[in-house]
């Protein structure tokens, strides 16, 4: 069972996150970069399976800036067997389509029985890449799973959509994405960190994958404008002097909200 876990380096949400107003790209210097928590949970799903199945081989994969190598290495320290880092200056401004095509090419190259991703990243919050990968790889998608059971030839789980809880099952190979309802990831221990140094770490360019980032014959989504929103002006703040509730009621009525 070969499991590819897609992880992402994101700006730490505990710091200030900035976009460069010239390029529209994330300002990497503005905040600390971390492994996205949801990707760590996706890795934990794979590691938990590997704990009881010797045949499991886990590959962490990321398309990220060159500087993200250290962050991706954390996945090896946690227990993945190898890492694939796709990095290319031409991919820095990749839209979702190019991202999905590049990842799909890398996944195909690596080989897979199961691909696990997080349902939503904390920076882009796109949430469409897993379904795009499934289409490009011609396999089933089972996204937003809040529980996952991996069997020899299939994967099943529960997804909580608006108004219903749905049980789904996909034959392998397949692509799944998981929600934050799944357990926190284990911490890398000292032994894991030392072992990570000897594990295979493959770095690939777009050309290695046969991807042409500037292919203008492919439709792309481009950023046409970016503006920093004026910080939401704090309104009135009062200290409750016994009439706080009444004052809120007045505010609501005045603004036709009640």
């Amino acid at each position: 069972m070969k499991i590819v876990v897609i992880v992402k380096e994101v700006p730490d949400t505990y710091g200030e996150r900035r976009l460069d107003l010239e390029t529209g790209l994330a300002d990497r210097a503005a905040s600390e970069a971390v492994l996205d928590e949801i990707g760590e949970r996706a890795l934990e799903v794979a590691l938990a399976y590997a704990d009881s199945h010797d045949d499991a081989e886990i590959v962490v994969m990321s398309m990220a800036a060159e500087s993200a190598a250290a962050t991706i290495r954390k996945g090896l320290a946690m227990g993945a067997a190898s890492a694939v880092h796709i990095t290319d200056p031409g991919l820095a401004a990749a839209d979702l389509g190019l991202t999905a095509r590049t990842l799909a090419a890398a996944i195909r190259r690596t080989g897979f029985d199961l691909v696990i991703a997080g349902n939503l990243s904390t920076d882009g919050s796109g949430g469409v890449v897993p379904a795009m990968l499934a289409e490009l790889l011609d396999v089933p998608n089972a996204t937003a799973l809040s529980s996952v059971e991996i069997a020899a030839g299939s994967v099943s789980g529960t997804r909580n959509i608006d108004g219903a809880t749905v049980r789904v099952k996909a034959e392998l190979p397949a692509v799944i994405s998981i929600t934050e309802a799944l357990p926190d990831a284990r911490l890398p221990n000292f032994k894991g960190i030392m072992a990570a140094k000897k594990k295979p770490f493959e770095t690939l360019s777009a050309a290695d994958l046969g991807i042409e980032p500037e292919d203008l014959s492919v439709a792309m989504s481009i950023m046409t404008a970016i503006a920093e929103k004026p910080p939401r002006a704090a309104g009135v703040k009062i200290i409750d002097a016994g009439d706080g509730g009444t004052r809120i009621a007045e505010f609501l009525i005045e603004n036709r909200l009640a």
Partner: peptide
């Protein structure tokens, strides 16, 4: 509205 509403971003297709 991205990064928790801190930025407004517009996007469009190159074609199609």
């Amino acid at each position: 509205s991205v990064y928790g509403g801190a930025y407004n971003v517009d996007s469009a297709a190159t074609f199609g």
